[in-house]
């Protein structure tokens, strides 16, 4: 993380996070030439992958003379928040923790739903938030398309929690 803040202006980092899970199909997809090219075209310069418990190892790259993407990866880190802050775009699994942490930092976010999960209720949240234009939502096989055609940071609506109303609990308990 030492050099993240140096020449910050010229760096546009894409941070990929799978949380505590393994999500090889996402890591494999972002490591593909197609996705890397699409990201370059959108003006991103760096790709940092948090791969969790996955077994697929992406190819590291320090970037070519031709200005190809700089790629780095790690498994876990206690400073995910720092990576999120330094990113210009976050590509995340559909866990609610990662989603809301990214939205709170007001970072452009693409959520990729893991279709291999048994009880796949996770897509509900991502799709609802995508409908409300807080983020973009896709699957591993549609990620490239989302980056190329849907990803437009100007249409993002900032997320805010809805005010909580605990009247029912107070009524039942007779709370002050």
């Amino acid at each position: 993380m030492d050099n993240v803040n140096n020449d910050f202006e010229s760096k546009r980092i894409v941070f990929v996070t799978v949380g505590t899970t393994s999500f090889d199909s996402l890591v494999k997809t972002v490591d593909s030439d197609q996705v890397k090219e699409a990201l370059l075209e959108k003006g991103y310069t760096h790709l940092v992958i948090q791969m969790g418990r996955g077994s697929y190892i992406p190819k590291k790259s320090s970037g070519g003379e031709d200005g190809s993407l700089v790629v780095d990866y790690f498994t876990f880190s206690s400073s995910i928040a720092d990576y999120l802050r330094s990113a210009s775009l976050v590509i995340s699994h559909a866990g609610s923790g990662s989603i809301f942490e990214t939205l709170r930092l007001a970072k452009p976010l693409i959520v990729v739903v893991n279709e291999d999960l048994m009880d796949n209720h996770q897509s509900e949240l991502a799709e609802e938030l995508a409908e409300r234009k807080h983020l973009f939502c896709g699957r591993p096989q549609t990620l490239c398309e989302v980056i190329k055609s849907s990803l437009n940071v100007d249409i993002i609506v900032p997320y805010e929690p809805a005010p909580t109303n605990l009247k029912a609990e107070k009524r039942i308990l007779g709370a002050p």
Binding site: F100, P161, N165, I172
Partner: peptide, 23 residues
Amino acid sequence: QLFVQWPQLQKQYPRARYVGRLM
């Protein structure tokens, strides 16, 4: 009392209450 965080979910379960969004 069962609380939910989305109004559309509350509509399906009338005895539930919409509590807002906690995140």
